[in-house]
Nucleic acid binder design. Sequence first.
DNA 1: ATAAGAATACCAATAATTGGGTATTGATAT
DNA 2: ATATCAATACCCAATTATTGGTATTCTTAT
Lengths: 199, 199
Amino acid sequence: MKPYSNKVVIIEPAEIISAGLKSVLEEEGSYNVIKIYNSFSHFKNVWREENEVDIIILNPKSLRYDELENIKNLVPYRDTIIVAIISGVYNENSLRFFDLKMSIDAPSESLIKELDNLTKNRTDSAKTDEHNELSVREKEILVEVAKGLTNKEIADTLNISVHTVITHRKNISKKTGINSISGLTVYAIINKLVDISKL
Amino acid sequence: MKPYSNKVVIIEPAEIISAGLKSVLEEEGSYNVIKIYNSFSHFKNVWREENEVDIIILNPKSLRYDELENIKNLVPYRDTIIVAIISGVYNENSLRFFDLKMSIDAPSESLIKELDNLTKNRTDSAKTDEHNELSVREKEILVEVAKGLTNKEIADTLNISVHTVITHRKNISKKTGINSISGLTVYAIINKLVDISKL
DNA sequence: ATAAGAATACCAATAATTGGGTATTGATAT
DNA sequence: ATATCAATACCCAATTATTGGTATTCTTAT
């Protein structure tokens, strides 16, 4: 295990849960809960003043759906691990952008174990999902995807190989964290790459 | 050839083109241009008073993009053949819902020939794309598609078999005339089946 | 009561996407 | 000058989507 202590922020309205998490994490040794917020908006209002955060554990109930989808961009640091702490049932898909989904019913050892795995791999993965802005070419590809063209059709339209289209799409998905065509379409609409009234 | 004379409506701002089309079509014998409009809005304002129309030939420039996508629903009769008459270059994909795309540069024989083919097959195809409204269940499926779930995920969410999901999706595509996931997503947004800000 | 529609389910073949890679070229920045 | 990035292209394996069918059950309307 690292000698380094991971800085953890918890965003959770229920005090019992946040307190329980804190004690479980700090008992382990390599995690240090530096701050607890009871709402996401509270956290957002102060995050710029914070030091870098390694892990954010938050209750998805404190987020609107559009925030859930954009969670990776709402959070200060790109290589921050984002964990959903779930009480009760939750739509699996709506949490797809979280690095880890943990039930409060799960044993604390498994939580620690999964967190350990994530922090271990973080240095590698930080390299890959660092750059969030799409290149000009990637935006062009994305527009064609949103129009409903297949990869082959895109390749023909832009006079490039299907392989290249696929490579671009892999990079687009990596950067945006969106893997579905419909998600990419919505992303393109929201980011004004296409006009829905003209699509 | 049929003894029946197909009723044709032309929607085209340029008089030269509409007049030329009329003479080419009527020379052939089995087409009768019953009306010419110079704009789509003009046509829309009066269509209810019209007799049934077999073929509508229109310049896509008189349509907004969302009208292009919905062209099949904007037109009075479902088994009406819709032909795009194109001057200059045009995005191939944006015209995908037209039954026929004809350049004004193309020889008149080929236009007649392709129209003949379409009118010949019309009785069969009318059976297939008749019903345009989605059933409640189909809308449910569509919503999940727009959310980005795979067919298998949809099946699990709704507790039905993947086969059923696929069958529903086939029917949805048949009814809407939209085959791409991104197109269906846009359709779901436009028809307010989903809220883009919550997606 | 019979036809039609909606919802369900299955089969098979083909097409397309996805995710894991590697690699080259040209431009740009340290 | 050397490292990084963007754009290009290819490979492979696995999964998913698409499209063509058929078929059963239940409800509703003629």
